[in-house]
Amino acid sequence: MSRQTALADLEQEIAAPGGGPDRLRLVGTPFVPEVRLYLAEDAILWWARMEAAAGRSLPPPYWASVWAGGQALARHLLDHPELAAGRRVLDLGAGSGLVAIAAALAGADQVIANDIDPYAVAAVTVNARANRVRVTADGADLLDGVTGADLLVAGDALYDAGLAARVLPYLRRCAAHGVQVLVGDPDRGHLPPDGLELVASYPVPTTEPSVDSPVRRVQVLRPR
């Protein structure tokens, strides 16, 4: 699917009349009320409806929910704007673009929000527009290279073992090249036993699907 098609789909969804848990709505982020995002009350229902309309499989709409790791990172950037102000920032696995938008609000000189899902790229575009910030949405797979950014942020980027096996070496490689790296993770079980140190810890309201606790303790970490 092209980025243009995904963007047109989301813009049509946003403009469509009516309500229901499978619709996209512009809502405040629980732990980061400075940022509003287009989210689905029930992302699974939204996904099912969109797949039925398309007549084919679509990638899981991770961007249609707000995740605990991203909320913690966004809060951290807004509370410590010196981390992003005047710098080039890359938000890896950006999803909705929450962390990228927070970096822009904190005064970043340039923000790139990267995600390989075309719908996430489209979501970044509409969400940045809604928050009146400039964020460049990028859909390339960056994990075999090294970023030229000053600050690399990755929220909830270690949600399964296969992805963590690619993301962690990338983060370490970027850090070795002088990039400041911050990871937001609610400990989904794929953090390395060493190599990362704690920067901050936040109790974050959980809104993502299939979570049995209203609050998750989220760590903001950096490579040692």
Rank of each mutant, 00 (worst) to 15 (best):
M1H: 13
R3T: 12
R3M: 09
T5G: 02
L7D: 10
A8Q: 14
E11S: 03
E11T: 10
Q12W: 10
Q12G: 09
E13T: 01
I14T: 09
A16R: 15
A16W: 07
G19K: 05
G20S: 09
P21L: 13
P21V: 14
L24S: 04
L24G: 00
L24A: 04
L26T: 08
V27R: 14
T29M: 06
F31N: 08
V32K: 02
P33C: 07
E34H: 09
V35F: 01
R36D: 08
R36N: 12
L37C: 11
L37T: 06
L37S: 09
L45C: 08
A48F: 13
A48N: 13
E51Q: 15
A53V: 05
A54Q: 12
R56F: 09
L58Y: 10
P59M: 07
Y62P: 00
S65L: 02
V66T: 15
W67L: 04
A72L: 05
A72Y: 03
L73G: 03
R75P: 07
D79A: 13
D79E: 15
H80M: 05
E82L: 12
A85Y: 02
G86Q: 10
V89L: 13
L90K: 00
A94P: 00
S96W: 02
V99G: 02
I101N: 05
I101A: 06
A102L: 06
L105A: 02
D109N: 09
N114F: 00
D115C: 04
D115F: 01
I116M: 13
P118R: 10
V121Y: 06
V121E: 11
V124E: 01
V124S: 00
V126P: 03
N127Q: 09
A128C: 12
A130E: 08
N131W: 03
N131E: 09
R132A: 15
V133Q: 07
V133M: 06
V133T: 11
R134S: 15
A137W: 05
A137D: 06
G139Y: 06
G139I: 11
A140C: 13
D141R: 08
L142A: 08
L143V: 07
L143S: 10
D144S: 14
G148V: 04
A149T: 07
L152V: 08
G155F: 01
D156K: 05
D156A: 09
L158S: 05
Y159G: 00
L163R: 13
L163Q: 13
L163T: 15
A164G: 05
A164Y: 03
A165E: 15
V167E: 00
L171C: 04
L171Y: 03
R172H: 14
R173Y: 11
A175F: 08
A176E: 15
G178K: 04
G178A: 10
Q180K: 12
V181Q: 02
G184W: 01
D185L: 01
P186Y: 03
D187N: 13
D187M: 02
H190L: 02
L191R: 04
P193C: 11
P193R: 11
P193K: 09
G195R: 10
E197D: 11
L198D: 12
V199Q: 14
A200W: 03
P205C: 12
T206L: 09
T207P: 02
E208L: 12
E208K: 01
P209G: 11
S210G: 04
S213N: 10
S213Q: 15
S213H: 14
P214Q: 12
P214S: 13
P214K: 12
P214V: 12
V215H: 09
V215N: 00
V215S: 01
R217E: 15
V218E: 04
L221Q: 03
R224P: 01
